[in-house]
């Protein structure tokens, strides 16, 4: 069977990511393991947003909320002496799923600008909640005493083991996401995005499907939050700042909305550009900004849209 250029790009990308720790070792640049792990964590967050934004048409401008909840689940438990990773990460996933359920239940009844504003407002609430709790460092945040513990499985202090775990989760989510959007469930949310009155007229009640997608997306992003705080070893309400939500959305749009692979590429390009440009000048955003504008203007389907994909009809 002939492979589409996009499938080949995916294979090449996965191979490259898999080889990063090896290359870093050879070049004696351990920093790259750190950088690409960070990229993959944000790729997971962007991928989770794309599920509802690209396929469900839900413009969540508060996806950083789930990063924050995942991070706080880990940080708070560690602060109270519970470093068990299974427990922490379960709480991260469950907690963000519950918050997504609450936010989604309200926001999905609205659309357009109202949807954006409600998701933003909830995230701001959580952000200020984070700032106000002095016990957990308030405004300044706090150091994570130890990374999540997975006795008998792996040690996150080992940079390479942590790296491959994140890669594994990213690949798993790419697979899950692809199955999800192509399955009956995905077809319903895509149909509702395409034409909601029509979807209702043929008998679908889109609300519960959209809410379920919103919860799945929140849970995925919550796990990204748990990974992120282990990555930075520092818990801060900044994880939930609205500019963070904006960055995640930028990654999705930059890479290609509604493609799953695109947001991963978007996260890589965004964070690599940030890394390169910020070493060069403190005003790196002056360069990044126009670049994003150009991509949005001239590559409407994002960077991944430049790679042909024969076998993908339907929205």
């Amino acid at each position: 069977m002939a492979r589409s250029p996009r499938a080949l790009t995916l294979a090449a990308g996965v191979l490259m990511l898999a080889l990063v720790p090896v290359a870093a070792e050879l070049l004696d640049q351990p920093f790259y393991v750190d950088l690409f792990r960070r990229i993959m964590i944000f790729a997971i967050a962007a991928l989770s947003l794309d599920l509802i934004l690209g396929y469900g048409g839900m413009v969540s401008f508060g996806h950083a909320a789930y990063l924050g909840i995942g991070a706080y689940a880990v940080g708070v438990l560690t602060h109270h002496g519970i470093a068990n990773g299974y427990l922490q990460w379960s709480l991260a996933i469950l907690g963000s799923a519950l918050v997504a359920l609450a936010i989604g239940a309200v926001s999905i009844r609205t659309s357009g600008v109202y949807f954006i504003m409600i998701t933003l407002a909830f995230t701001q609430m959580l952000y200020y909640l984070g700032i106000s709790i002095e016990e957990y460092g308030g405004d300044d945040g706090m150091r994570l005493a130890v990374r999540s513990q997975f006795p008998g499985l792996l040690d996150l202090r080992n940079a390479t083991a942590f790296y491959y775990l994140v890669l594994g989760i990213l690949l798993l989510f790419l697979l899950l996401g692809q199955r999800l959007v192509d399955a009956r469930f995905g077809m319903v949310i895509r149909a509702a995005r395409s034409n909601e009155p029509r979807a209702r007229a043929i008998g679908f009640s889109p609300y519960r499907y959209k809410l379920t997608a919103f919860v799945i997306s929140g849970a995925m992003c919550g796990l990204a939050g748990a990974l992120l705080v282990n990555q930075t070893e520092y818990l801060t309400p900044e994880f939930m700042h609205w500019t963070r939500s904006g960055e995640i959305m930028f990654m999705v749009i930059l890479g290609g909305i509604g493609t799953l692979m695109g947001p991963v590429l978007g996260a890589a390009v965004f964070l690599l550009l940030e890394d390169v440009l910020s070493a060069w000048t403190v005003h790196w955003q002056i360069i990044l900004g126009p670049f994003l504008v150009l991509v949005v203007l001239f590559a409407k389907k994002g960077l991944i849209g430049l790679v042909p994909d024969e076998a993908a009809p339907g929205g």
Binding site: L180, A183, R184, V188
Partner: peptide, 9 residues
């Protein structure tokens, strides 16, 4: 339609 795995197409 709460089926998440098999491609509907």
């Amino acid at each position: 339609s709460f089926r998440f795995w098999r491609p509907a197409r």
